[in-house]
């Protein structure tokens, strides 16, 4: 153990510089309002698509087995189908859905940043 106390570190926030004009980012101008609505709609649609696949792929299973009880007799590799689906297969499925979502959401955000910064890249910042 060292006897020297560690040097003091000044803790500060991220630099407060703004690369985009305020009126484009704050939603209180007409243009800002359009931007916000378009991003909300885009990300919302993506979320609904992922959830729809989740509903069809996983949440539908009780109904499927309810209306087709014969499926319970299927035993691939000796394991009943329901066990295989719910005990094993569902986990990679959820991960694939999550990866799909994260990639698409990050792409949406990149596109959005490009759009907002491309509109008026050189407009000077008001003090």
């Amino acid at each position: 153990m060292s006897t020297e106390p560690p040097p003091r570190v000044r803790v500060t926030g991220p630099p407060r510089r703004r690369t985009v004009p305020r009126r484009l980012v704050d939603a209180e101008s007409p243009l800002g309002e359009i931007y916000l609505s378009s991003l909300l709609a885009e990300q919302g649609r993506l979320a609904l698509r992922v959830l729809l696949v989740l509903a069809l792929g996983v949440a539908s299973l009780p109904a499927v087995f309810f209306f087709a009880p014969d499926l319970a007799d299927l035993r691939p590799f000796g394991i009943p189908l329901a066990w295989l689906l719910l005990g094993v297969a569902v986990h990679p499925f959820l991960w694939v859905l999550g990866t799909w979502y994260v990639r698409s959401a990050e792409r949406n955000e990149r596109d959005f940043v490009d759009l907002v910064t491309a509109v008026s890249p050189t407009e000077p910042e008001k003090p």
Binding site: T19, V20, V25, D26, A27, E28, G32, E33, L36, L39, L40, Q43, E109, F112, V113, V116
Partner: peptide, 13 residues
Amino acid sequence: SRFMVRLHYPERL
């Protein structure tokens, strides 16, 4: 609306 901007906009903006 301002709060929504904070929730949904990437931090860079």
